[in-house]
Design a protein around this nucleic acid. Structure first.
Lengths: 335, 335
DNA sequence: GTGAAAGCGCTAACAT
DNA sequence: ATGTTAGCGCTTTCAC
């Protein structure tokens, strides 16, 4: 029906009775263009009338810029990425560029290389640790800008990090303030950068509080509710179980809560539980979880700015420090 | 360092000592190309050696195809979209096309129109009800294919729907089987198509079970945990409260559980609760939620196929019927 | 103040 | 079995 063949710059120019170069310059707000107001109006009217939209491919070909950036995440089901995406999308929209968010498919890393090398996307925001060193190297080889978010990636020098160590420390400090001394940690995956930093923060804060880290009180190896549940069972089975647990992420905390419940262990009466990342779910669990809020959306935003080359950091690591402890019902004073 | 200026078809042709058209046809596996194996090998070797990647913009300009499709969702934080995205991404990857997933920003609907009209994306998968009728009309006006997923959108004739009515009916039937007669419904937003269909299914199933729908037992107007909590409080405050509640979605169910807990009402002993969409969270709540599994990923996949024009449905509504009741701990026989 | 012309990198119809 | 050619629709330098 409305299949009127595509309108081009030439059509607009013809209708406005000017050259297409003039139309182009009007569209792009060329400063150096001197034009009579009435001519400009005629051009704008023609654009309106024909419902003209510049062809993205032609423009990209000419300018060698696609106005598109990529954001790679491991899994849309993990709510922390929703926040990062939100911030990145916002920054992209503000620059009138397009953000292409996708999950990393470990089977076909060459897809991402092709995207960069073909110019389809101009730069990449890396929020996934699911890429092989080989794939990273291939991406780097394209020469396009790459920024990692929420994690350190070997070979990628620009990164936006949260202060994961401080997040752990805030929780440990909160727990020691409540009188806890046997504070356990359900850690994330061994190969995860964030998990390692959270573990470091946990250990450091214990020492800072005059406590000695006990290896027996560190369990777990994953970011899922299954790993969290298993680690919790392990900890509760200890001869001398912890009175408080810092869980590395919310998913694992959900599992930990569930495991405690099944064992008849009450939270927080018998054991306090706290975790990192204040996603909405945390407030709705039973009991509502004490968490640490991290500036995830802001990190997404900063990552995009770094891609645009608009950040001040000029290639250095940026650690966002706006971490904040949110105390809810899952932590209480030691009995 | 590796900033060697971009490699073009011409460079490859020169190195392989053939014409660039030959290289192009080799790359695109042109059937009608007759070529000596050794020549083809020379071309492939040159491509390897120069690490050549075809320029996406030039190709798009020439073929008038971008190989990119858009998927519009209302919110990445809602886990049901993670499933839809997963299916859509998979279908896109299988066709070697790119999927651009983004959230609908009600403030700037013209962004999506531009994307379609500029040829940046070839078609749109609509999983959001956040677009105005006006915006939809503008999108339709581009003449590009549009398919809606998980909802009916006025003006969009191709759609992939779940059987929301049946989902409600499965729950109601489960509850009546357990002996419940006062079965309430915490409904979704009034302007939501899925919410309306779930309400219809609820009413129909009550009648089919010989029960008379009681308007007082329908509360709520939203898909958030806040609206769910408020509706639950309202229902529990009735002179004769329900013994079972069908909540329209998981988020509202989380709120409903939380409200019941705060009021000292036990689930399922005092009131049974069930909801629609079996996302992983449902199994990890306390108590684990009885839900209905819907083929969300499959719907995303089918939506993409419809965009590609590969579906059998040829423009008709498709209702997926693979809904399945998952009974967990939040429903039990009436006391 | 406006127009002419070249060319971005590719594909496809048509030579040879 | 391979080469020639003509654009796709746009931006930009330069000319008038």
């Amino acid at each position: 029906m409305t299949s009127a063949k595509r309108v081009t710059l030439t059509d607009v120019a013809k209708l406005a009775r000017v050259d297409k170069s003039v139309v182009s310059r009007v569209i792009n707000d060329d400063d150096r263009l001197v034009i009579k107001p009435e001519t400009r109006d005629r051009v704008l009217a023609a654009i309106q009338e024909l419902d003209y939209h510049p062809n993205a491919a032609a423009r990209s070909l000419r300018t060698a810029q696609s106005g598109t950036y990529g954001l790679l995440i491991p899994d849309f089901a993990n709510p922390i990425y929703a926040e990062i995406i939100k911030g990145a999308e916002q920054a992209a929209a503000a620059r009138d560029t397009v953000l292409l968010t996708g999950t990393v498919n470990e089977d076909h890393p060459e897809r991402y290389v092709r995207m960069l090398a073909s110019g389809r996307v101009e730069g990449l925001l890396l929020a996934s640790d699911k890429l092989s060193a080989q794939a990273i190297e291939a991406l780097r080889h394209t020469g396009r800008p790459i920024v990692s978010v929420n994690q350190r990636v070997p070979g990628v020098e620009r990164m936006i990090l949260a202060d994961d160590e401080r997040a752990s420390a805030l929780v440990v400090r909160h727990l020691t303030d409540l009188g806890h001394e046997r504070i356990a940690h359900i850690r994330g995956p061994r190969n995860s950068d964030t998990a390692r930093r959270r573990l470091n923060g946990y250990r450091g804060a214990l020492r800072a509080g005059g406590l000695t880290p006990d290896p027996a009180l560190v369990a777990g190896d994953g970011y899922t509710s299954e790993t969290g549940a298993e680690a919790m069972r392990e900890l509760l089975a200890l001869p001398e179980p912890p009175t408080a647990v810092l869980v590395a992420n919310v998913a694992a905390a959900v599992g930990a809560l569930s495991a405690a419940r099944q064992l008849g262990v009450r939270v927080p009466e018998d054991v306090s539980v706290a975790t990192i990342h204040d996603i909405p779910l945390a407030a709705n669990l039973a009991p509502a979880l004490t968490t640490v809020r991290m500036p995830l959306a802001e990190m997404g935003r900063q990552g995009m700015l770094a891609l645009f080359g608009e950040d001040s950091g000029s290639g250095r690591t940026v650690v966002r420090t706006e971490t904040e402890l949110i105390v809810r019902d899952s932590t209480s004073a030691r009995a």
